[in-house]
Amino acid sequence: MKTAHPTRKPPSTALGAPLLEVHDLAVAYGGIRALKRVSLEVRCGEIVAMIGANGAGKTTTLKTIMRLLPIAAGRISYDGQDLAGVATEEVVARGVSLVPEGRAIFVNLTVRENLELGAWNHKDQRTIQETLEDVVKLFPRLGERMKQEGGTLSGGEQQMLAIGRALMARPAMLLLDEPSLGIAPRLVADIFEAVALVAASGTTILLVEQNTRLALKYSTRAYVLRTGEIAMSGSSKELANNEEIRAAYLGG
């Protein structure tokens, strides 16, 4: 039940201990504070959801964890090490992969090329090949479309490709940004089932999702983000039964 992999060391963090810790994080775009004060932790092996309305700062949090945005204040640590001053490529090398919002696959590259780019940090061809086979087992549709250009896939397939690309790095932790956005409902279920399988294999997951019902169904714990601050947190079951949450995010 852990990500045994020959080329990347699994996190030294024990199962159930905090793998990612975000402490009083603040982020600003120009003069505007997108995140005021966000603290959260994701324990090794968990699926944690971050829910909240548009503009609450969910994507910003993920991008900042990936070090794609500068930290204004606060601290992020992964696997016991501070991520301040760490470049994005180094974050990836340490075992964190992001599935960006809106999928952001390479539309002019083939499915195979997209996936191979995901294995950027791995030099061993056999490892890459095996990972590729694993990803295809997870998303058989991708296997049928290896030679197609990414742009020719349907929205759901593109999302599968984006997740597959992130998995190619063999991450110990996967950050998912709105995987259900603009995807046919039937495929959404497929994608979440796949995410659950990935989690079952020991990959820790931080999930950002506007579809609160889905997010709470698949996660173990959740944080509610409101205008750049954590408004509420708790186990997903608790939150799903919370009156306030039901009224605000689950439509009554």
Binding site: L132, P140, R141, K147, L197
Partner: peptide, 18 residues
Amino acid sequence: VTGAGPAQPVPARTEAEV
């Protein structure tokens, strides 16, 4: 880039099994 042929569609299995 890789020398593999077209991948065979396989029913999804847990990565743990894999």
